[in-house]
Design a protein around this nucleic acid. Structure first.
Lengths: 168, 168
DNA sequence: ACTATTTACTTCAACATTCAAGTACTTTCG
DNA sequence: CGAAAGTACTTGAATGTTGAAGTAAATAGT
């Protein structure tokens, strides 16, 4: 079941694009983490948790739902939410209608935290990602990302709108 | 020194592109790690170390040079190279001309390992990244990545050829 | 109604990564 | 020539993440 022909190596354009992409994947997360840690004392993962709650109705969400949103398993989420609870930004309570489910809710302090943190983070995303690109490139990035994500994980959260353009 | 106006929020195209990019950055590394671990018993980082040595003259490189290539600090590299040395794929020796420097060299077994592993990994990169894209998109991805990387780290390894196109 | 399986989450142990100190060597300067 | 400073790397402690077992509650079967 091996491919009988020699493998299709990357051509030089592809190879260059690949190495560049690896570089971006290595450095962009650290850069964003550093900004959040410096300006808000939050890891990127903690920020995602607070952001996920802030967008939800009643600022409340199930743990497993949050785990899906943040692309992480329940154990990791559980520990991080414990920390956020100790800091007073999140409160956990069992779902009255189903005792297995734990609901995580953003407190008022947590809401204030995310409201105070978001603008600086958005600015960082802008500076590092969109400002260096033309408008056309920003659109291309969206299309390219969706194409790749649809292979990586067709059920991903971001692809719910069924708009993976077939052309370019 | 705060921006007096309200922050420039991401517009809906940008927001969508951003969430997609986050998804790709979360999942692509794990997918590649999984392929290498399954097919070759290597982490992506270990693969990068072997690949970095395989491309070097005499298949030999300084530890600090390798650390730059793999975008990681010396402590991490030191431990990983220790493991690779125990498995017989790398050998370390002090530089005869400067006793502070440690040279890491790929053994024949290590060369055989990377030669046997590379085709499957390249195939995975192809399947996950380039096959879903048109040729035009592959080129766009290269340009976009270089633009972003040039802000993230202007001294990056990949940008040595001074070819960040100013147009699109 | 009572057990058995499934679901949702937490906790515990193994592992990897990061940061700070330590070691060995080289270069510089009095 | 000898002490001080700097460089390259390794080691060890603290932290965070992943995987496996454990708990608690709900559903399904008998």
């Amino acid at each position: 079941m091996e491919q009988p022909e020699e493998p299709r190596w990357l051509n030089s354009d592809e190879r260059e694009a690949w190495l560049t992409l690896v570089g971006v994947m290595m450095k962009l997360p650290s850069a964003l983490d550093a900004q959040l840690r410096r300006d808000a004392g939050l890891s990127h993962f903690e920020y995602m948790v607070l952001a996920g709650l802030s967008e939800a109705p009643d600022r409340t969400r199930r743990m497993s739902d949050l785990a899906g949103f943040t692309e992480s398993g329940l154990p990791r989420l559980s520990q991080v939410v414990s920390r956020l609870e100790k800091r007073g930004w999140v409160r956990r309570s069992p779902d009255p209608t189903d005792g297995r489910i734990t609901l995580a809710a953003l407190t008022d302090d947590g809401w204030a935290k995310i409201v105070g943190t978001a603008p600086g983070h958005v600015q960082a995303v802008r500076t590092l990602v969109f400002d260096p690109l033309t408008k056309a490139q920003s659109r291309q990035l969206g299309s390219i990302g969706k194409r790749i994500l649809s292979v990586l994980d067709p059920d991903d959260y971001c692809l719910r709108s069924a708009d993976v353009e077939p052309g370019a």
